[in-house]
Simulated assay, not measured.
Amino acid sequence: MPELPEVETVRIGLASLLEGGTFRRVTTRRADLRFPFPERFAERLAGARVLRLERRAKYLIAHLSTDEALVMHLGMTGRFHIQAPGEAKPHLIGDYEYSTGAAPKHEHAVFEMQGGGRITYADPRRFGYMLLVPEAELAAHAMMRALGVEPLSAELTPAYLASRAAGRRSDLKAFLMDQRIVAGLGNIYVCEALFRAGLKPGRPASVLATPTGKPTAHATRLVAAIKAVLEAAIAAGGSTLRDYRQADGQAGAFQETFCVYGREGEPCVRPGCRGIVRRNTQAGRSSFFCPVCQR
């Protein structure tokens, strides 16, 4: 499943065509994705202008002039092809895990923009979904209300992590992947952030807080590591897991700089460390770490 940097890369690619644009016509080619399309989906979007396109956790949210929000989740294999006015053919801006080309049977929604431009949503496994939510109800919507802070926002601080981690028995990996605490973090970037912070995935989350609930040095290092690894991944256009691509069709490059993820059995990249990267399983997901310099 795409993680936060990949979703942000898609948002950047879509924004140039969507933000400030108006839907001329919307076509759905089936009744549902993971969930049914909203009632009168195409009719409600036709003529609506996109005021801004943002990302919340792993959701894309288009805020509309109709006082509704188009909420989109890519699932495992959702991706967009965009064709800007004057372009001869569309290009891909999101392809995760499975490469199926542009087979029409997988193209489930088409958004045509006034003044030209076309966006096609394809999803071979149909785990993605789209919702139309009144703006006034968006924050309280079931998909949004329990989300934690954005990891790249000013809200993610050592003090915040310490306040949520105090007394917790769960391990750091599970703590960071809890979307109610930090929104949008996934397996790859949690492994990479914990390596940068020098913390083992299996350590108890309570190491981030002192007995009085103040942030420890671990919390300070971890916040800096989370922000740094996400910013670097976004700058690199995300990570290519088989076929992820950026807005210009180029493969994301961050996977070329992974320190631990997918590197089981390889030497640790930290200067002076002689450790060998290990992999274990936590809650059904692979964790990669250096047993020597991560403590």
Rank of each mutant, 00 (worst) to 15 (best):
L74I: 08
Q83D: 04
Y59G: 09
R44Y: 13
V50H: 08
D95E: 13
R49E: 12
L45P: 11
K105S: 14
F111D: 10
G47F: 03
A103S: 05
G94S: 06
L45F: 07
G86Y: 07
E97Y: 05
V50Y: 04
Y59I: 09
A48G: 10
H108G: 08
P104L: 08
P85T: 04
A57E: 14
I93W: 00
P90A: 09
A102Q: 15
E112S: 10
P90E: 00
E87R: 04
M113C: 04
A102V: 13
K105P: 09
R49F: 01
P85R: 06
Y96H: 15
M76D: 04
T77A: 08
A48W: 02
L70Y: 10
L51R: 15
Y96S: 14
V50P: 11
L45W: 04
Q83S: 07
S99M: 01
S65E: 04
L70C: 11
A88D: 14
L45T: 09
G47L: 07
F111S: 12
P85E: 02
T100Q: 14
E107P: 00
Y98W: 06
T100Y: 11
F80P: 00
A88C: 04
H106Q: 04
V50T: 15
R52G: 06
T77L: 00
K89Q: 15
T77K: 01
L45M: 12
H63Q: 10
I82K: 07
L64Q: 12
E54H: 08
K89A: 15
M72A: 14
E107Y: 02
G86I: 03
G75M: 06
F80W: 13
L64P: 14
M72R: 04
P85H: 01
L51C: 01
Q114L: 03
A57Y: 06
A48N: 10
Q83P: 05
E54G: 11
L92P: 08
A84E: 09
H91A: 03
Y59K: 13
A69Q: 08
Q114A: 14
S65M: 02
R56G: 11
G101I: 00
I93T: 07
H81V: 05
E54M: 04
L53F: 01
H73W: 14
T66N: 13
L53V: 10
L64V: 12
D95V: 00
Y98F: 09
F80R: 01
H91L: 07
R52T: 10
R56L: 02
G101P: 10
F80E: 02
E54I: 07
K58Y: 12
M113K: 02
Y59Q: 12
M113H: 00
R52K: 11
I61K: 12
M76P: 15
Q83T: 05
P104G: 13
R44T: 09
H63N: 08
A62C: 09
A48H: 08
E97L: 13
E107D: 10
H81L: 14
P85N: 05
